[in-house]
């Protein structure tokens, strides 16, 4: 019976994989990370609705455990591919004919320009910070978030992060 559960879990995951691929290609303006998470939630709900009609001797929770595990592995690899600065640097080195770039060029491009500016933009867009002529400051929402993070970091003895 467990073999049927695992097989159905793998099938569920493959449907998810296909749906995310199709969604990312169909809606290039949408955030791929948001699409991947939303589709995972949608497929999980849909599976719970469809499951009773599946004429197989299987257990929903075992199937769910298998599919969830595979989807989480997928999301971890997806997240690394989508956001990793390290992988992006490696890729850009590979794209040059000599397979090398000046260190200062990489520092200026990835850290000071692209990534840093993008993160500032994220803070402003999410309403965590506001910008004025004096500079950037935390909004009440951002202050609450930062304090919550600081609290959990202290709970787990994380002295520095970044």
């Amino acid at each position: 019976m467990n073999v049927t559960d695992v097989s159905l879990g793998i099938t569920w995951f493959l449907i998810y994989l296909t749906a995310v691929y199709a969604a990312i290609r169909s809606w290039p303006q949408a955030s791929p990370a948001v699409l991947a998470v939303l589709i995972a939630a949608a497929i999980t709900i849909a599976a719970a609705v469809v499951a009773p009609a599946i004429p197989l001797k299987a257990n929903y929770w075992r199937v769910f455990a298998t599919a969830s595990f595979l989807m989480l592995v997928y999301l971890m690899v997806f997240g690394a591919t989508y956001k990793s600065i390290s992988l992006h640097i490696l890729h850009d080195l590979w794209q040059t004919p000599s397979r090398k770039l000046p260190i200062e060029h990489i520092l200026a491009r990835y850290i000071q320009k692209e990534s840093f500016s993008a993160r500032i933009q994220v803070m402003l867009e999410h309403g965590w910070a506001t910008q004025s002529s004096q500079g950037i400051t935390l909004s009440p929402k951002g202050r609450w978030l930062a304090r919550s993070v600081r609290f959990v970091q202290r709970l787990y003895n994380i002295e520095k992060s970044g």
Partner: peptide, 26 residues
């Protein structure tokens, strides 16, 4: 919690009593 880039920037702002320019956050 331990490596979050954006969260670390928020913490830099939390530690500052006044608004910071982007260079100061860096």
């Amino acid at each position: 919690l331990s490596r979050g880039y954006t969260l670390a920037m928020l913490l830099a702002l939390l530690e500052s009593p006044s608004p910071l320019a982007a260079d100061a956050i860096a």
